[in-house]
């Protein structure tokens, strides 16, 4: 099991690093910031072109279970003095994200990069900057790890 986990993550990391070095292959607006180990990786995300998030940069934190890729990683926006999470109907102010790809719709053939791209397009297609319903209640009671939350997925296309 741990063999699968580390072989798979090393392979993903290798592919990401090759892509990042080659502007033709790189997914525009997504950049690997830090991957010191096979536990926690950080990415920066920008939405290019016309969108409500023009000129804003967000940071994603990705944490892996030993059961990755059979279990989805825990993904959330970083909240700190320097970076803030986007204001979006599926993003809580503590950085937790309600997206089905991180839960029920996760598949072991998806990758960390596929998650980043999905979240980027979730931002790109947003029509109105607003907080999720019940944000304050959720943030007050939310577990540290968003994977412990049973989200009810809303329309992912928003």
């Amino acid at each position: 099991m741990s063999v699968v986990y580390s072989r798979r993550l090393k392979k993903e990391l290798q592919e990401i690093q090759i892509e990042q070095a080659d502007p033709a292959k790189r997914a525009a607006g997504i950049q690997l910031l830090q991957a010191d180990d096979l536990k926690t990786w950080y990415f920066s995300i920008e939405v290019l072109g016309d969108s409500l998030y023009k000129n804003e940069t967000f940071h994603l934190m990705v944490r892996f279970d030993p059961e990755y890729p059979f279990k989805s990683p825990a993904v959330q926006f970083v909240v700190s003095d320097k970076v803030k999470p986007p204001i979006h109907p599926h993003v809580y102010t503590n950085g937790h994200i309600c997206a089905s790809i991180l839960g029920d719709d996760w598949s072991p053939t998806l990758s960390v990069m596929a998650i980043c791209i999905t979240i980027q397009s979730m931002l790109a297609s947003c029509k109105k900057k607003e907080l999720p319903e019940g944000n304050d209640d959720y943030v007050r009671t939310a577990p540290d790890n968003p994977k412990k939350t049973r989200f009810v997925y809303h329309d992912d296309t928003v």
Partner: peptide, 14 residues
């Protein structure tokens, strides 16, 4: 995997 290579599992890369 391309059709010329041996099977490579797309999940575990074994």
């Amino acid at each position: 995997p391309s059709s010329f290579e041996p099977f490579l599992c797309p999940i575990c890369f074994d």
